[in-house]
Design a protein around this nucleic acid. Structure first.
Lengths: 151, 151
DNA sequence: GAAAATTGTGGGTGAAAGTGGGGAATGTGA
DNA sequence: TCACATTCCCCACTTTCACCCACAATTTTC
């Protein structure tokens, strides 16, 4: 598995190309075939999953009963926003415009490692997001990280 | 298996021809013989199954009990609306008018990947469909994706 | 500390992708 | 049989994108 971490500020050029930080690139397994799957992230950002990680989700999706209305809605929502992009010779990906628009990205991007995927944020947006609850970081941390048995 | 995904807006020309997006074309296996089977989708859209995927459904249909009234109705509806179309030299398919009419398509189409098939939507119609329950997307997601054992 | 390799960024170009139209072959109904 | 519509097979145009090269800056290596 991948285990992405870190935060880098990179630039998206006029062609929509984005360089993947070398450190994160190294966390990409050979099974990913140099390919990421872009999708809409939770909150206002773009999520990029290595292809091999994405496959796990896909297998779950394939099991859903498409005759069920809720399942159809879920699938359409997720899949309509999913797209494969491959690294070019310079280890860059082409980020389609609709994803940049969704996250409000233009020129500069903050790339954040998120364990099994990476996220693309508009720099200011990410700043604001972090500061919004920074005061209570320790509190939030203790909450989400508490063990079921109370350790 | 195929695993179609993504959302593209393409155009149907005056002759009813529709280009298949290159990325989706690449997901087409050789067994499909460059052929899709068009049929009525669930909700107001046209579904296009690669021939090989369609065969799997056919096997399921063959198992249905034709002495059962509901099964007969289902079969007749599905089969009456099914038709094979082959890619032409430009990798396009010809979508018969009745399908376009059914989905209200005229000029522009949104093509959505749905794992084992692709769907054709009238752009506004798809927009409305997605937004109609957008507020509860996370809710739907947690519902349909929850594990049998409650994890 | 200098040389070499890697990394981040930018641009040019030819191939591929998306779109549209003409005309021959085929089929349909008056 | 003829007019008309439909469908298939070419050809053509525009836009997009994948690939190549380039270069400065940084990091690594000896």
């Amino acid at each position: 598995m991948a285990f992405y971490k870190g935060q880098e500020t990179y630039s998206v050029d006029s062609k929509g190309r984005l360089n993947i930080p070398a450190k994160m690139r190294r966390a990409l397994s050979p099974e990913a075939l140099n390919t990421f799957v872009l999708t809409r992230g939770s909150d206002r950002c773009v999520a990029a999953y290595p292809l091999d990680e994405w496959r796990r989700y896909e297998l779950e999706y394939a099991k859903l009963n498409q005759y069920d209305e809720q399942s159809r809605f879920f699938l359409r929502t997720v899949l309509a926003w999913s797209e494969e992009v491959e690294l070019d010779g310079q280890q860059r990906i082409m980020v389609p415009k609709k994803y940049l628009d969704f996250a409000g990205i233009d020129g500069k991007v903050v790339i954040v490692g998120m364990i099994d995927h990476i996220e693309l944020w508009q720099p200011d947006e990410f700043e604001i997001y972090l500061s919004k609850s920074e005061a209570s970081y320790e509190q939030v941390a203790s909450q989400v990280m508490q063990r079921p048995n109370g350790q």
